[in-house]
Design a protein around this nucleic acid. Structure first.
Lengths: 201, 201
DNA sequence: AAACGATTTGACCAAATAGTCAAGAGGGTG
DNA sequence: CACCCTCTTGACTATTTGGTCAAATCGTTT
């Protein structure tokens, strides 16, 4: 029966998805090395043997979680702006200023894993390099669009995107270090005024 | 005998210092959670019981290492510039551009620990908050001096220092993520041009 | 030289860790 | 109904982890 098959697949996907979600949360909160498999399983409500049916080991599961959850996140957040047909900069700035999109206690999921794992494990290094490059690329696309509609003057948007993403990551870090989200906002305003210096031309 | 007493203290300090050094290196390379006590002891050439004579536990030793080694580092690097009597900005920029002062593979020791530990452990959170605040403060002092000798126009140096340190941390992160130190240099040039926009006035 | 405190040694321990596995449940298909 | 494949269960293991401790060592003081 089609319906029964569908349910079966849904259950399977459900278990796998619960593992992915719980792994992402645990890694985001405690880092990869600090993530306890037992806690992930408890939070997902999945038994150990079941987990090893879906993933070869902790590392593979974590990499899957990172790729799927972060790709999902960035896919919606930044690409949506580039999909529009104007107000690229304004929409981008609005997103930067929106504190609801940020969790300063835990910081940026990407930055956390880059800092912890890039120099420790080659597979993590590769994965994070890709994700971070995609982040920069999607910001560059926003700037390119902004140039194309005259919101920015023609400039090296790749470098501008690099500077923007770097500063953004630094701003989140500062707020995490100080425990003060105002630090993030102050940085963002400086960043925006820098970007706006490319407006007229 | 004075001499013998001196030697004894030196030996004691030697053991403790070797532990501090090895702990700092291990934590810098693998993070706190990834730092294996056994490796630290092996690298320091110190036995376990001996270590527990000097430190209550792994955490206390790591906190001591972080405080002593990073305080030492920042004490020399940034305070030295403020101690001079001119060319504050030029000296600061020169330091930023000097790649020899950076290890992009491992990133910034401060940022690494903030990212890993600030939301996990209250003692680490407190320690890193202090260190990061000192970092910002020492950069602010450089800018204040620059204002006082007319290298910068009068402005909110606290915010400028916040933006500068944040962007710097973000630049180091970007280079760590991409494995390309040029990314750091590009960010630094953007940052410098931003700071220089406060020159005339 | 005896006594003392500070340091070192290395064996030992309990807890936690990731990972294994054999047995079974459950639904889909012949 | 019996077979099969996917998925689940939970006990088990091997290893590593941070931490303990009693005995020995060493220099200093009396």
């Amino acid at each position: 029966m089609r319906k029964a098959l569908g349910d079966s697949n849904k259950m399977k996907e459900n278990t796998r998805q619960r593992l992915i979600d719980a792994t992402y949360e645990e890694v985001y909160s405690h880092g990869y090395q600090g993530a306890a498999l037992a806690d992930i399983l408890a939070n997902a409500g999945v038994h150990k043997g079941s987990m090893y049916h879906f993933f070869a080991n902790k590392k593979e599961m974590a990499l899957a979680a990172i790729n799927e959850k972060i790709a999902e996140r960035f896919g919606t957040r930044y690409l949506a702006i580039a999909k529009g047909d104007r107000d690229y900069l304004a929409n981008f700035f609005e997103g930067l200023r929106d504190l609801n999109q940020r969790d300063f206690r835990r910081g940026c999921p990407v930055a956390n894993i880059v800092q912890e794992m890039s120099n420790i494990d080659e597979d993590f290094n590769t994965a994070m390099k890709e994700i971070y490059a995609k982040f920069r690329q999607s910001v560059k696309i926003i700037f390119d669009k902004a140039v194309s509609v005259g919101e920015l003057r023609s400039c090296d948007t790749a470098k501008l995107a690099l500077f923007t993403t770097s500063t953004l990551e630094g701003a989140i870090l500062s707020a995490k270090a100080s425990g003060n989200s105002q630090d993030y906002l102050d940085c963002v305003e400086c960043l925006i005024s820098y970007i706006e210096s490319y407006k007229h031309g």
